[in-house]
Design a protein around this nucleic acid. Structure first.
Length: 579
RNA sequence: GUACCCGUAGCUCAGUUGGAUAGAGCGUUUCCCUCCGAAGGAAGAGGUCGUAGGUUCGAAUCCUAUCGGGUACACCA
């Protein structure tokens, strides 16, 4: 809807030379003034482009104002110093906005900014050594909502999970499973049998029993080399399946799973290393002892290093351990080379805040391998504190007594979990109160927006019992003239901003904004509803006046579409009535 | 010691490429159900945006310094 206005503003600016080179229409801000008396909308374009065009803001503002005046939907334009242009639009503009929303329907917030460009979103990527825990839940929801947002701006999204199915942790996993296997065969095992770093959680017992049933004592009293590969493979496969199941109850589905082990088997690590060697980015060297932390068994060791300092990292990073085997980082070199070979130059990776030390080396690696075409963005999310009636829930990883993702979803439901996980900026830790989260109050913001939606559905039921079945064509074509109240216009205005806000959230990779906008719209709706309680003129349904009722229903229908769109992006189900 | 993140109302947090008089919820005070769902709404109190400088027409937002909190810092993943 704002494109027409943007065009007018742009025309006002384009009388000055250099306009086309300096910015595009998309850079023009149109927003609602905080103070109502100033107008319906304003732009700061005169100030923000004053420098680029080398023209004083007031002159630009005058030119913008003149151009806006020629737009017939604009009724009044005022200039405020130092160059704000405030204006009012005709009611018909807002009325047309409703028609626009209804015609676009489910595609209302879709903007084809990226024109089908491929993007790879890597998220969760949990080690397949146990069930997903609550931290993964935030990662999963963040990645999944970000992906939905990317699709809204025209990206072709691939949701990807990187499987760390190689290394010491997987060895420990296999040994842990072997202990459980011995236990299944009647050998007594206690927690003391599990060394540091091994996995003594209950979940391996089930897998051990399955091996015992199918293979009896075939692996008993054999050398580790005779069984370890089988146990690794079995454990990883099964745990991955349970991870997939956990993600699915959260409504998260991956498109691609990529195995680290496979990349090694395909010799892609060697390939990545030889590419970097050719670029002169690899060398055999000794790393300095880290400062500010005590390492007891520190030894100077020569190892293969990647020259990541060349790309902005603080120190160079080891690709081989001192014993000559590959590091985890070596696998990541291969992995990102693999991503780019599959055509993904635009990459987004979601990681926990504890990975902050890893970003620079990852970006360095991608920059070194990407030949300038690469574009990787990494987003970190903060931890979640689980509370119960305000008191922290104790979690001990050692005894395996930590809250799993499944626990949370089973307790509060998928929708509440998803909503809570993205209701805050990713840089802010979340306090998640398991009790308050299911209360039917404003301590539980999910219900606020669902309540708004349910109320709208209720009005529709009511309308139909008065006037019979409603159809969309009718809503589109009916006269919107009865919509004149301030509260109605405010709601329409908020709905009109929706596509801009969604694309801004996508570009910034900030899914939490969606929840904020939804709160705003729900609030405007609730406000309008209550206004109708006091002033019967404003009620959505006037039993004796179908025309008026229909106009109001068209506004509600547009609101409903936007709420549904928001729900879909967040991945929660709309409720047509509260229990 | 170094890097990254956070510091906004009593509490939990928004604040969109820098925009005009900094906003919500909870809590608190006062109103609004004979009337489409009060699980809601209207209004009040509550702020030198951690502190000090700087950049400019204009700073919660950008830069520098500083204080407080979090996370991470050889070969692990």
């Amino acid at each position: 809807m704002f494109t027409i206005i943007r065009d007018s503003i742009f025309n006002g600016l384009s009388t000055f030379s250099g306009t086309k080179d300096n910015f595009s229409k998309h850079d023009i801000l149109i927003s609602a003034p905080k103070i109502q008396a100033r107008g319906d909308l304003y732009t700061n374009a005169a100030m923000s482009f004053s420098k680029a065009l080398n023209v004083v803001p007031k002159v630009l503002a005058k030119s913008i104002a003149d151009s806006l005046m020629q737009n017939e939907s604009i009724t009044e334009v005022t200039i405020a110093s130092p160059g704000f242009v405030n204006f009012r639009v005709d009611r018909k503009f807002w009325h047309a906005s409703i028609d626009n929303i209804i015609s676009k329907g489910k595609d209302y917030s879709y903007t084809n900014l990226k024109n089908g460009e491929s993007i790879n979103v890597e998220f969760v990527s949990a080690n397949p050594t146990g069930p997903l825990h609550t931290g993964h839940a935030r990662n999963a929801v963040f990645g999944s909502v970000a992906s939905n947002l990317f699709e809204r701006i025209g990206y072709k999204v691939t949701r990807e999970f990187y499987i760390n199915d190689k290394g010491n942790q997987i060895d420990s996993l296999a040994r842990s499973l072997y202990l459980r296997y011995k236990e299944a065969l009647g050998i007594s095992i206690s927690e003391d049998n599990f060394d540091e770093g091994m996995y003594c959680g209950e979940y391996l017992k089930e897998l051990a029993f399955e091996i015992m049933r199918n293979y009896l004592d075939e692996f008993l009293n054999k050398d580790e080399s005779d069984w370890i590969e089988f146990f690794k493979d079995f454990a990883v496969k099964r745990l991955l399946k349970s991870i997939e199941a956990d993600l699915s109850i959260l409504g998260v589905n991956m498109d691609v799973y990529t195995s680290e082990l496979e990349l090694h088997k395909q010799r892609l690590v060697d390939e990545a290393v030889s590419i970097l060697t050719e670029k002169n980015d690899m060398y055999e060297g000794i790393l300095p002892k880290p400062k500010g932390m005590v390492i007891e068994d520190w030894e100077e060791k020569s190892q293969l290093l990647f020259k990541s300092t060349k790309y902005g990292d603080d120190i160079d990073r080891p690709v081989k351990k001192s014993d000559g085997t590959w590091t985890y980082f070596a696998g990541d070199l291969a992995y990102h080379l693999n991503k780019m070979r599959r055509g993904f130059y635009k990459m987004v990776t979601i990681l926990g805040a504890d990975h902050n030390g890893y970003i620079k080396r990852l970006k360095s690696a991608v920059n070194a391998l990407g030949n300038g075409k690469q574009d990787i963005e990494i987003r970190l999310y903060q931890l979640i504190n689980f509370l119960e009636k305000g008191k922290p829930v104790r979690m001990s990883k050692r005894s395996g007594n930590f809250i799993t993702l499944k626990d949370v979803v089973e307790r509060v439901g998928k929708d509440v979990t998803r909503y809570m996980m993205i209701s805050r900026h990713h840089d802010v830790p979340i306090d998640f109160d398991l009790v308050k989260a299911v209360e039917l109050s404003m301590d539980n913001p999910v219900f606020y927006i669902q309540y708004a939606y349910a109320r709208i559905c209720s009005v529709f039921r009511n309308y139909e019992s008065n006037f019979g079945q409603i159809n969309i064509e009718e809503l589109k074509t009916c006269s919107k003239d009865p919509l004149t109240d301030e509260a109605e216009i405010f709601l329409i205005r908020a709905l009109t901003f929706w596509p801009d806000q969604i694309s801004a959230a996508a570009i910034a990779i900030e899914p939490h904004r969606v929840t904020i906008f939804l709160q705003e719209i729900a609030s405007l709706f609730h406000s309008l509803w209550n206004k109708g309680k006091i002033n019967t003129e404003l009620r959505f349904i006037s039993p004796n006046n179908k025309e008026e009722s229909l106009a109001r229903m068209s506004l509600l229908y547009a609101t409903k579409l936007v709420l549904e769109d928001g729900f879909k992006i967040i991945g929660i189900e709309p409720l047509s009535e509260m229990r």
